[in-house]
Amino acid sequence: MIHPDADACDEIRLYRYLDKDLDAGEMAQMAAHVAGCRQCRRQLAALTTFSQDLRDRVKEATNSVDFVAVEKQVLNKALRQYGSRGGLSRFIAALKYTIPATITAGLLLFFAYSSDVYKPPPLPSAIINSFTGSMSSVMIFETPETRQTILWYIEETDVESEPNAV
């Protein structure tokens, strides 16, 4: 009996049988039919061979692909697109706050540095612009470290009593 059940020679049912997409009763019925139907058996064998060959080729192709490299490539491409789309505007937006904040910080540092940290060299405590008088001698000098200005004079009547105090 080549065709025990003509309705069973249904190509769709054969695909579903191959894919085990039938219920238990249909599977048993189809198995019995295939066992008795040479045409279906041949077709099933051809389908099985084709399916196996396809799986092998897919597997072989899959093994030859470097998924890590592909993932990196995709990520880089996505990041480039993201950067070119919103990067400039985000950068400009950030500058609105960064520049004033930097200027403020600079001013604060300047005032802190000029008032506390930076110690300029001492200036002479006094600058004598003019000097007139009647005296025996006068000396103007300053101390070496703190530059305290000293004006030392000897009055005319003091010449003999204290000629050289320094």
Binding site: I127, I128, F131, G133, S134, Y153, E155
Partner: peptide, 8 residues
């Protein structure tokens, strides 16, 4: 007057 001076 012993002396007169202008200082800064």
């Amino acid at each position: 007057t012993v002396f007169e001076t202008q200082v800064q």
